[in-house]
């Protein structure tokens, strides 16, 4: 059973004190967070929705990069399996309570290793409050995701 404490970890902007003692949100978060939402993949000109897709956002210790893992995605509806894909070392920045992230020409990880066939290009996204959204291309598959922070019982 997953512990409640883990489940309660939410994405928040890292908090630091300014000279005047006010709170700022200029530093990216170092906390891991999970989201659930819909991932839309364009296939042969048609949009194909993957419902209830889980996405994990795992910032590095420095908070300047993050790994984004997408669980159980299908690139085409006919796929008899779903796969987990990780986009490593995405560039992260934070400003005014919003975390932005981006990346280009990133080789994702899946099926135990690198998957250059699904090279990530044009990654751009942001986390605002409890919402996340991003878009990218997995090789020839334009993809976008929007989801909400995962609250698990």
């Amino acid at each position: 059973m997953k512990s409640k404490s883990l489940l309660a970890i939410l994405l928040v902007a890292a908090v630091s004190c300014g000279k005047d003692g006010s709170l700022t949100t200029d530093q990216p978060s170092s906390a891991e967070a999970g989201y659930v939402g819909t991932m839309t993949v364009e296939y042969l000109g048609e949009a194909f929705d993957n419902e209830n897709i889980s996405v994990k956002f795992t910032p590095s210790e420095s908070g300047t990069t993050a790994d984004i893992t997408i669980y159980q995605i299908k690139f085409v509806p006919q796929m008899p399996v779903t796969i987990d894909v990780t986009i490593p070392s995405v560039t992260v920045s934070a400003a005014s309570g919003t975390i932005s992230f981006s990346g280009d020409n990133i080789v994702p990880w899946a099926l135990g290793g690198e998957m250059p066939r699904y090279l990530v290009t044009g990654l751009s996204g942001r986390i605002e409050g409890k919402e996340i959204s991003f878009s990218l291309s997995f090789g020839d598959y334009p993809t976008r995701f929007s989801g909400r922070e995962q609250v698990q019982e």
Partner: peptide, 11 residues
């Protein structure tokens, strides 16, 4: 093995 690879079968 599939789960270890991050592959999930529909059935």
């Amino acid at each position: 093995m599939m789960a270890g690879l991050g592959v999930h079968l529909d059935h």
